[in-house]
C-alpha cells in the first residue's frame, strides 16, 4: 500500500520535470528573429500602448508590458517582459508614481531610452491618505490631459525616427481631434445627470481628473491601489456620504476586487452601477478595447448608473 503512494509521488515528480522540459523546448522553438523594420515601442500598460498605436500607425509596433485586465500598480515584470523591454527602441511610462516597478525595470535595462508621457500635464494632487499631496497618476482619464500625452508621444517618436515626422504629426492631429470630439460628447452625457446626483463613488480614487473636468464630486475607498484596503474611517465616510446624498449607484474598477464596495452597497442601500475601466483596457472583445472606448464605456456606465437607467 505504501508502494502506491511512492509510485504516485515519483510519477508526479517525473511528470513535472518532463512537462517543464517540454515547455522549455517548445518556447525555445518559438523564438524567432524579428525582421520587422517598424519601431518597437514598449509601454508600461495598455492605455498608453493604444495611444502609441494611434499616433505611430504602421510605423510602430506598439506593445504593452502588462496584459489587459492586470492590476498595474503592483506588477512584477517577468523575464520575458525584460527581454521585450531590452529589444524595444523606446519605452513609455505614465510616471506620477503609477508604475513604481518601472524603476526596477530601468535598473535592469539601462540601454533603452524611456520617456514619461505625463510630462507637462496639469497635476491634480491626491487628497488624502499616505500619498496625500503627491500627484494623482490617472491623468489620462481627462481627455484634456490626454492631449498632452498624445503630444509627448508624438515628440518622442519623432525624436527616435525623424524621417517619419510628418506621418506622426498627421496621425497625432487626427487622433487629437477624435479625443476633443469625445470630450464634448462626454460632457454632454454627464450634463444629463441631475446636478445633485453627480457623485462618482469608486474603489480607487482614480477619477479625480475626470471628476474635475466634468464637475462631479468624488468619493472613494482608497486613494491609490497600493494600499488597497481602505481604512475603516474612509469606508465609514463613504457609507455615510452615499446614504446622506442618496447616491443611486456606486462603482468599482475592472482591476479591483469589489468586495468592500459590495459591503458599502449593503450598508448604504445603494446599488452597484457596473464596472469602470481605468488602469487597463479590456481584451479585444471586451467593452473597452481602446482608450476612446474605455472613456466612452466608463462614462456611459456612470451616467446610466446615476440616472438609474
Amino acid at each position: 500500500m505504501n508502494k502506491k503512494i511512492i509510485i504516485s509521488i515519483v510519477v508526479v515528480a517525473i511528470s513535472i520535470m518532463l512537462s517543464w522540459v517540454f515547455l522549455v523546448s517548445r518556447d525555445a522553438d518559438r523564438e524567432k528573429q524579428n525582421t520587422d523594420t517598424r519601431l518597437t515601442v514598449l509601454s508600461t500598460f495598455t492605455v498608453i500602448s493604444d495611444m502609441v498605436r494611434e499616433v505611430g500607425g504602421e510605423k510602430v509596433e506598439a506593445i504593452s508590458l502588462t496584459k489587459p485586465g492586470v492590476e498595474i500598480h503592483g506588477y512584477e515584470p517577468t523575464p520575458g517582459d525584460l527581454v521585450r523591454a531590452s529589444r524595444a527602441d523606446i519605452i513609455f511610462d505614465n510616471g506620477l508614481n503609477l508604475e513604481l516597478w518601472a524603476q526596477k525595470l530601468y535598473t535592469s535595462i539601462s540601454n533603452v531610452p524611456h520617456v514619461t508621457i505625463s510630462e507637462g500635464i496639469e497635476v491634480v494632487p491626491i487628497a488624502e491618505g499616505a500619498y496625500k499631496d503627491k500627484p494623482n497618476p490617472h491623468a489620462w482619464m481627462s481627455p484634456k490631459q490626454a492631449l498632452v500625452y498624445v503630444e509627448n508621444i508624438r515628440k518622442a517618436l519623432t525624436e527616435v525616427s525623424p524621417e517619419d515626422e510628418a506621418y506622426f504629426a498627421e496621425r497625432a492631429r487626427i487622433y487629437s481631434e477624435k479625443i476633443k470630439a469625445l470630450d464634448i460628447q462626454l460632457r454632454e452625457s454627464i450634463s444629463k445627470i441631475p446636478e445633485a446626483q453627480r457623485y462618482l463613488t469608486t474603489c480607487e480614487g482614480a477619477f479625480s481628473y475626470l471628476a474635475k473636468d466634468y464637475g462631479m464630486k468624488e468619493l472613494y475607498l482608497w486613494a491609490i491601489n497600493d494600499e488597497s484596503q481602505g481604512s475603516p474611517q474612509q469606508i465609514a465616510y463613504v457609507v455615510d456620504q452615499v446614504k446622506k446624498n442618496t447616491i443611486p449607484a456606486i462603482f468599482c474598477e475592472s482591476t479591483v476586487e469589489p468586495k468592500i464596495q459590495e459591503e458599502v452597497v449593503r450598508e448604504s442601500g445603494s446599488r452597484m452601477g457596473g464596472v469602470l475601466y481605468v488602469d487597463s483596457l479590456s481584451g479585444a472583445d471586451g467593452p473597452a478595447p481602446t482608450y476612446l472606448a474605455l472613456l466612452t464605456h466608463t462614462v456611459e456606465t456612470i451616467v446610466n448608473g446615476l440616472r438609474g437607467l
Binding site: E76, N97, W101, K104, S108, K132
Partner: peptide, 20 residues
C-alpha cells in the same frame, strides 16, 4: 507605512525583485 508619505512602495522592499 500608512502614516508615511513616500515616493516608493516600502512594502515592496520586502519583495525584492530578482530581475531588477
Amino acid at each position: 507605512i500608512s502614516r508615511t508619505v513616500s515616493s516608493i512602495d516600502l512594502m515592496h522592499v520586502l519583495f525584492g525583485y530578482v530581475l531588477g
